[in-house]
C-alpha cells in the first residue's frame, strides 16, 4: 500500500459525518454484503458464472506481465494497483509523474496501443497484453527524440512535473497528425495542464517537432536566443 493510500484511509476513517463513510464502516464490519461468491483472501480462483468458468483475481497479489517500452516485465500486483504506480514503484519506470492521480492533469500520460491515456487511471491488471510506451522509450542513448529536442530548444519546461506527460501527448498528437492544425494542436494537448505556464514554449516545440519529424533528427542548439 502506498503512502497515499494510507492517507486516504485515514481521511475516510476520520470522516464519521458522511454517508459514504458510514456505509464504509458498516461495510468493513461485514454487515452490508451478501455476494453470490464467497470472498477468500488469496491469488486467483475460478468461479462459475452463466455456465462458464471465470477467473477471479485478488484481492491479494497476482502475477502479471506488462510490455513496457518493448520489453516484457513480470510483476505481482493487487487488482487495485494502477499502471502508473506499478511502473513507478515496482518497475523502476518513473518518467510518468503522479500529480493529481485523478485523470485531471495529464502528468501521467503514456501511450497504450498507440493512444494517449492517463496511466494513473488504468489498472495494471488491465494493461496486460497491451503495448505500453512511456517517455523513457523516446531517447535512443544520448540522442533525444525530436519532440524532446524541441521541448529543450523551446525551453518548454520549468519544474518538469508536467513535461513527460506533455511530451507523450505531443508525440501521440504528431503520430496522428504529422502537420497538425492549430485546432488539432489544442485538441491534442487539451488533456494536459502545466502549473508553471510553459504553454508558449510547448506551442513552439510542437511546431519544431512537426517540422523535424518530417525532415529527420533536429540539431541541438544552445539556449540563448529569444523565444520570439
Amino acid at each position: 500500500m502506498s503512502s497515499s493510500d494510507e492517507r486516504h484511509d485515514h481521511a475516510a476513517d476520520a470522516n464519521t459525518s458522511g454517508e459514504s463513510a458510514v456505509s464504509r464502516r458498516k461495510f468493513l464490519k461485514g454487515t452490508g454484503v451478501a455476494l453470490t461468491i464467497p470472498l477468500v483472501a488469496g491469488g486467483e480462483k475460478i468461479v462459475k458464472a452463466a455456465g462458464a468458468d471465470v477467473k477471479i483475481y485478488g484481492p491479494n497479489k497476482t502475477e502479471i506481465t506488462l510490455t513496457v517500452n518493448g520489453s516484457p516485465k513480470k510483476v505481482s500486483v493487487e487488482p487495485r494497483a494502477t499502471l502508473l504506480d506499478t511502473l513507478r514503484n515496482d518497475l523502476d519506470t518513473t518518467g510518468a509523474k503522479r500529480v493529481c492521480d485523478r485523470a485531471t492533469c495529464g502528468a501521467c500520460t503514456m501511450i497504450i496501443d498507440g493512444k494517449p491515456v492517463y496511466g494513473c487511471t488504468v489498472l495494471a491488471i488491465e494493461a496486460q497484453g497491451r503495448k505500453i510506451e512511456t517517455v523513457e522509450s523516446l531517447a535512443k542513448g544520448d540522442a533525444l527524440h525530436p519532440v524532446q529536442q524541441a521541448f529543450w530548444d523551446n525551453d518548454a519546461q520549468q519544474c518538469g512535473f508536467c513535461t513527460p506527460g506533455f511530451v507523450m501527448a505531443c508525440k501521440a498528437l504528431l503520430d496522428k497528425h504529422p502537420s497538425p492544425t492549430e485546432e488539432q494542436i489544442e485538441m491534442g494537448v487539451g488533456g494536459n495542464l502545466c502549473r508553471c505556464g510553459t504553454y508558449h514554449g510547448i506551442k513552439g516545440a510542437i511546431a519544431q517537432a512537426s517540422a523535424a519529424l518530417k525532415k529527420g533528427p533536429a540539431k541541438m542548439t544552445r539556449g540563448g536566443k529569444s523565444n520570439g
Partner: peptide, 19 residues
C-alpha cells in the same frame, strides 16, 4: 544573462496571471 529563460519566466508568470 540568458534571454530565453528570462522570457520563459515572463511567459510563465503571465500564464499564471491569466489563471
Amino acid at each position: 544573462i540568458d534571454m530565453k529563460t528570462t522570457e520563459s519566466q515572463v511567459f510563465g508568470a503571465m500564464i499564471m496571471g491569466v489563471t
